[in-house]
Design a protein around this nucleic acid. Structure first.
Lengths: 197, 197
DNA sequence: CCCTTCTTGAACCGATGGTTCCAAGATATC
DNA sequence: GATATCTTGGAACCATCGGTTCAAGAAGGG
C-alpha cells in the first residue's frame, strides 16, 4: 500500500548524536546533520520533526546506549569497590582516547551548554545524574556489605562525591586533560572517600 | 582635536560577559550584545574587533574579576583548611543564588561548549584550571604546616581532587542543583580528602 | 568659525539559520 | 499492471547570522 523508509533511522540518529555530542546544539546546523547522515532535509524533518526534537532523540539515545555502557557494570549485583574503580578507568579511557577523545560526555556538555532550557532536556539531565548517583551507591553499598570498606564510611555521600567528580572528569577531558593525571586524581579520590578495609 | 568615547568600554565588556557567560558563544548573536550594551555595532567592532575577540576579552575579564574574587582568599598566606571550606561555601552560594544562579562558571561552560577550539581560549582554560589547583594546593599546604591535616594526607592530590569537584559543582549548578545538597556533598569530600587532625 | 577626529545609526553583504512545500520517484496491495 | 500511499529530492521561504561600509552628526583644538 505504501512506501517504506529508504534509510536506517537508527544509523541516522547515531550520526546526528555524534554531531550534537561533539559540537553541541547551537553550533550544529541542520545542514551539518544532512551532510553527516546522508539523508535529505525532507526525510529528516518527516522522521524527527524538528531540530530540537532530533536533539532530544539523540540525547535519549546517548543515555540509553553510551551511558548504559558505563553504568551497567556498576549496577550489577556485588560489583563492590572494584566495579567503582573499573567504572572510572573506563570513563577516563573513553573520554581521553579513541574516537570519542575530547568529546566529553553529552550529558555534562548539555548541562554547561544550557540545553536544559528545554524542560524535557532538563528532566533527562536530572534523571541521568540521579542514576549515576544511584549506580555508585549500589556498588558502594555492595562493597560495604562485602566488608571492603573501612568502618565509618558512608556509601551514600561517597557516591554523591564521586558523581560530582565524574562530571569534573568529563569537563576536563574536553580540554584534553592527561589521562594519567586524571587516573591518579580519581584513584586518590576513591581512596579517600571510599577507603579500603 | 578629536571626539572622545561616549560610552564606558568596561561596562560594555561587563554586559557582554554576562551574555556569553549565561548563554555561551554560539547562542549569543552580535545583535544581542548590541542590545545589551546599548552601544551600536560600529562602536562595538571599532572597540573589540570581532565577536571572537570580544568573547576572549570577556573571558579574560571573567577570570580576572569573578574567578579572582573566589580564588583570591584561597591564595592568601595561611588560610589553611577554613579557607578551603569557605571557598566552596562561596562557590556554591554564587552558583545557586543571586543574579548568577544557574549560570554556572564561564570557564567550565567554555570547556563543555567546545570553545577551546580557539587555541587562545584553550590556553586560558588550562591556565585557569592550573591556577585553581595551585590555589587549593597553597591553602592545603598551609593547612598541613599549621597541623590542621591528619597525618598521611597529601595536599597535592587532595587539591587536584577538589579542583575536579569544583567543576562538578559548576556543572550541576547549571541544572539548578540544590545548594544544601551540594554543600553536604562538598563537606563530605573535604572531610575525606583533607581530614582534620 | 573651521577643521579634524571620532561616534553613530542605518543600510548592506553573502551566508546560513530552521522550516515548509510540492512535484517526482518508489513500493506494496489489489 | 493500476492505484493509493508514502518517501524523496530540491528548491524556496523568511529571518537572522557575523561582518563591513558610509554618510551624517557631535565634539574638541586652533
Amino acid at each position: 500500500m505504501a512506501d517504506v523508509k529508504h534509510f536506517d533511522p537508527d544509523a541516522a540518529l547515531d550520526a546526528a548524536m555524534r554531531l550534537f555530542w561533539q559540537r553541541g546544539t547551537a553550533s550544529t546546523g541542520v545542514q551539518d546533520v544532512v551532510d553527516a547522515t546522508g539523508l535529505n532535509r525532507s526525510s529528516l524533518y518527516a522522521t524527527f520533526g524538528s531540530k530540537q526534537e532530533l536533539y532530544r532523540a539523540t540525547l535519549e539515545r546517548y543515555v540509553r546506549s553510551r551511558s548504559r555502557l558505563l553504568l551497567g557494570p556498576l549496577e550489577e549485583d556485588g560489583g563492590g569497590l572494584p566495579a567503582v574503580r573499573e567504572f572510572f578507568d573506563r570513563l577516563i579511557e573513553t573520554r581521553c582516547t579513541g574516537e570519542f577523545a575530547r568529546w566529553g560526555c553529552m550529558v555534562s556538555n548539555a548541562h554547561a551548554g544550557g540545553e536544559n532550557g528545554d524542560p524535557e532536556v532538563g528532566a533527562v539531565l536530572d534523571r541521568q545524574h540521579r542514576q549515576l548517583c544511584a549506580a555508585l551507591r549500589t556498588a558502594l553499598g555492595s562493597a560495604q556489605r562485602q566488608g571492603q570498606l573501612a568502618a565509618g564510611t558512608d556509601p551514600e555521600s561517597a557516591a554523591d562525591v564521586l558523581a560530582l567528580l565524574a562530571h569534573g572528569v568529563n569537563i576536563r577531558s574536553r580540554a584534553g586533560a592527561d589521562a594519567r593525571q586524571l587516573r591518579a586524581t580519581v584513584t586518590a579520590a576513591i581512596g579517600a572517600v571510599a577507603p579500603g578495609a
